[in-house]
Design a protein around this nucleic acid. Structure first.
Lengths: 346, 346
DNA sequence: TTGAAAGCGGTACCAT
DNA sequence: ATGGTACCGCTTTCAA
């Protein structure tokens, strides 16, 4: 397909060996196992290495040691800024171990009619961190295959009942926090803006909300559930739908900050005041949450930490240590700002 | 450093050859140059390949063909969601060519005391797309070295006077658009919120604003220039600084949407109404811009397209075609929403 | 059209 | 501590 090739021949280990007056074996050792070489030899070799700015050809090395020193992160959609923090966290976890990060999104994988498993099988990556919980069953089967086992961890999202290791935020507890906050403020009429149908986060957050509501003796009629994606525009649209109903909710639980911001925007357009008329709470605590108007009350999940921990889990799994726990649930907290207030009297 | 290795031995080309009753050469050809193999042989080989889900070991292949089929994207900061659209665009440009995307940020590169050049020299990537215009001079020297020439393109940001190929938005024209819009609305008192000191975008946008202002017979006194980063919190802070001044601006040009949103947030806290008291315009048109309160008037740059074009430029440079132009400047447009209005009488 | 075999650039075993 | 060398898995002449 491609026809180019690296033009110039980079300097190789043989050149270094010749220049330093030692064997290639010694150069290799000086570089990878400095302890196994006499200090003088090492110094000698390193001098030549520095002088010529020699770099080990990573393919030759990987071919020999059967290791890529790279991890693949699979994101549902690269264009979605929500994932950037998690990716940054993954990078944080990988960097100390000297591993590289490969990134793709599910969309372009499909475009190439490839599965992320290809990368593992083709030895391009040692492991996979998957941020997409909605992979097709066929791909999940591949991922569960023995030759790939122990090289995959899910982060943030995950597929159900597959037994993969997963690192996630405590989505249920988060929604419970939101409900309790609102109930404490006197709210009784709730609505919920959900994420996409079939998404685990959608389900967990909904169930978390329903459970907490039930505990307060409240419930969520189907007519009070709207949404269908995590995106702003759907929050905007849902606000209209909700306000058009005969009995209006006084509190809206949103499954993402984007949804919440869109919702508030929609409410404003309709002349509904937040938080005087209705309170809204988000989920995620994205950077903008503190600066939207009004500043958003939301559930903070530490996405960077989530990414880092996922990377660390994968790394220890790769080095053969069995994971202490398959399911790691990170705590969340509520950040009360000004999009929530006491329920309007009446 | 790492001690793990891929546990199982994946099936190799020799196995396929044996199973199909042909030589490895034929298997290789059947896979890479189907035309050079008889239809029967090809079918025979492909059957075995499919059956065992065989994948070419990419390292062995890359070692042999001296090509990585991967491109490295260097982002200043992976955690910054601003870049995700560009990355997605790069992916768009790479996918049709079958190339993989490696991603790192400048921060973790430094942490590893590596330069992106290492990836190129170590043959891990065929080319580099750099979104960081503020690389240290030493690294830029490396990038300019002959053995790396033609394998680098800058996108969005770029270093000055180095002659690297760059793909960017028309930052000056964008600011000019903003100024003209505001001048048309009767504004005479401008302020500018800039990005970080030393950043090219900061400079281009400032110069664009100043030039357009000059053309309208207006100017921007130093006291009316604030900012110092593209981030929300600095927009928030700058709003305070600006409003504390004896003579207040009626229009604030922001070098990013983040800055604009922070600024509006800060103004609101001070009781200053947008757009009745002051108009503010952003730059970028991020997804949230349309949904902030008030919806943000801003300069739209097509970040996805920018990424895609950068990838395409790199690809053609890698395949030896000289670039038609070193500097590619993409058009921007103004999106008028509701954060701008006629200057208050007075 | 097909096969034999020589590497690609390292690493690590086995001697010394 | 060091060197010789087989080999990692694939691609690509070169011959047949």
């Amino acid at each position: 397909m491609q026809t180019y090739r690296r033009d110039i021949m980079a300097i190789g280990i043989k050149d270094i060996a010749r220049l330093a007056g030692v064997s290639t074996a010694t150069v290799s050792r000086a570089l990878s196992h400095p302890g196994r070489v006499s200090p003088e030899t090492r110094a000698q070799v390193m001098a030549v290495v520095e002088e010529h700015d020699y770099r080990v050809n990573s393919f030759a090395r990987s071919l020999r040691v059967r290791r890529a020193d790279a991890v693949l992160a699979l994101v549902p959609n690269l264009g979605n800024p929500f994932f950037s923090e998690i990716i940054a966290g993954i990078q944080d976890g990988l960097t100390p171990a000297g591993l590289d990060l490969l990134v793709t999104d599910s969309l372009s994988q499909q475009a190439r009619r490839q599965s992320p498993v290809t990368h593992l099988q083709a030895a391009r990556a040692d492991g996979l961190i998957c941020l997409d919980g909605a992979l097709p069953a066929g791909i999940l089967d591949d991922l569960a295959a023995s030759d790939v086992a122990g090289r995959v961890v899910f982060a943030c999202e995950w597929p159900d009942g597959r037994g993969f290791p997963v690192v996630r935020s405590d989505n249920r507890a988060g929604m419970a926090l939101a409900v309790q906050h609102l109930v404490g403020l006197g709210h009784r009429d709730f609505a919920l803006l959900t994420g996409p149908e079939g998404n685990v986060l959608t389900r967990e957050r909904r169930e978390g909300a329903e459970a907490a509501l039930a505990q307060a003796g409240l419930s969520l009629p189907p007519s009070r559930i709207a949404g269908g994606s995590f995106e702003i525009r759907d929050g905007f649209r849902a606000a209209g739908d909700l306000m058009r109903m005969p009995s209006r909710p006084t509190a809206i639980l949103c499954s993402s900050d984007q949804l919440a911001i869109g919702c508030i925007s929609g409410l404003s357009e309709l002349g509904v005041r937040v938080p005087q008329d209705v309170s809204v709470v988000g989920f995620d605590d994205i950077a903008l949450a503190a600066y939207s108007r009004p500043p958003l009350t939301t559930i903070r999940q530490d996405r960077r930490r989530l990414g880092r921990i996922a990377a660390e889990r994968l790394l220890s799994s790769l080095s053969g240590k069995p994971l202490a726990e398959t399911l790691t649930t990170l705590p969340v907290e509520i950040v009360v700002r000004r999009s929530t207030a006491a329920a309007p009297a009446g």
